[in-house]
Design a protein around this nucleic acid. Structure first.
Lengths: 174, 174
DNA sequence: GGATATTGCTCAGTATGCTGACTATCAGTA
DNA sequence: TACTGATAGTCAGCATACTGAGCAATATCC
């Protein structure tokens, strides 16, 4: 698609541009930002309505700690594709809320071993319905089939781009 | 393709689901975050390689100012679905870089009229190839048809969820 | 064993995004 | 005109995310 047009700023701001670049709605980057924006808002609303104060990021971290007791911060960051500098603050807040514990590792004195607390376990259990509801709400405009297809395409694009961000996904080695 | 679930560390792999929530890869919210994470990294890398220092957010704001000369901040925020408190800082930085101007409006003394500068126009023109390249790179794992389908589904989900975030899209009224 | 490289974590700084509050201004109405 | 409500913008505060730097501890190589 080519667009050769003279650089005239049109007097009517209400009509769409042709001398401008593509419309925002044709930019996957812009759509990614919008979808993420809505997804976070829906998550916070559903979880908040359920009486909890946990962000999507904190939820993912806590669930991963529960599933992998004693793991260190770098491994945790790799499993959920967070930057290692971000995970520090996230864990700070989980610890401060009493949902997780951070202990010095005996094997490697640089590392911290992470554990979920009973309170964290309780929170995870009680919060799950709200989290699942949020996942449904953020896809409410799509049929079940479309929702599946969206997730498939996102997974595929993410897999291909995994190494392009500073915090790629790193799977657990056996 | 194998997928080692991050929630598999439970000692008994025979009961994969009862005490664990869904895998992250089945959560549209998590996929949204990952895709957005990669999209931003790709944008910054492509634009940076081209010799410019502009974020995706700043780019969208600048392009929208160019297309709608003299618009105010609230209208701009609505057109690109930014929160009004976010746009203040974004414009601060565009102004500080000499790419845009913020003037008091004569019609409404509360409002600020925004204009792109010549420098901003030059920057936009020169940056466009990098921006378009970034959009291609972030979809590099998908066929052209799949990329189109992903964008279609994102648009549909976003439209349905538009009002769920604090900063919904507000189109220009004629 | 000792120099070197790497790794785990933290911190300072910057840029989104949001909540909630506040000021200044405008618009509608009694 | 005075009152009331809505609106435009900013600010403080918090939570992601990232860059780049630094420290301490571990691994590796000679």
């Amino acid at each position: 698609m080519l667009t050769i047009s003279i650089l005239v700023n049109d007097p009517a701001p209400s009509c769409p541009k042709e001398n401008s670049v593509k419309d925002n709605n044709d930019m996957p980057g812009h759509l990614a930002r919008r979808f993420q924006q809505i997804a976070v808002a829906v998550f916070l609303a559903e979880v908040g309505d359920a009486g909890f104060d946990l962000t999507p990021v904190q939820y993912a971290a806590l669930a991963t700690i529960k599933a992998n007791p004693g793991l260190d911060q770098v491994t945790l960051a790799g499993l959920i594709a967070y930057d290692r500098t971000t995970i520090t603050g996230v864990i700070d807040r989980l610890v401060q809320k009493g949902l997780a514990e951070r202990r010095a590792s005996s094997r490697d004195r640089r590392a911290r071993e992470l554990e979920i607390t009973d309170e964290g376990r309780r929170t995870l259990r009680k919060i799950t319905p709200a989290v699942e509801s949020a996942q449904r709400v953020m896809l409410r405009g799509l049929s079940a089939k479309e929702g599946e297809e969206l997730m498939r395409l996102l997974r595929k694009a993410i897999t291909a781009g995994n190494e392009l961000s500073r915090a790629p996904l790193r799977e657990m080695q056996a």
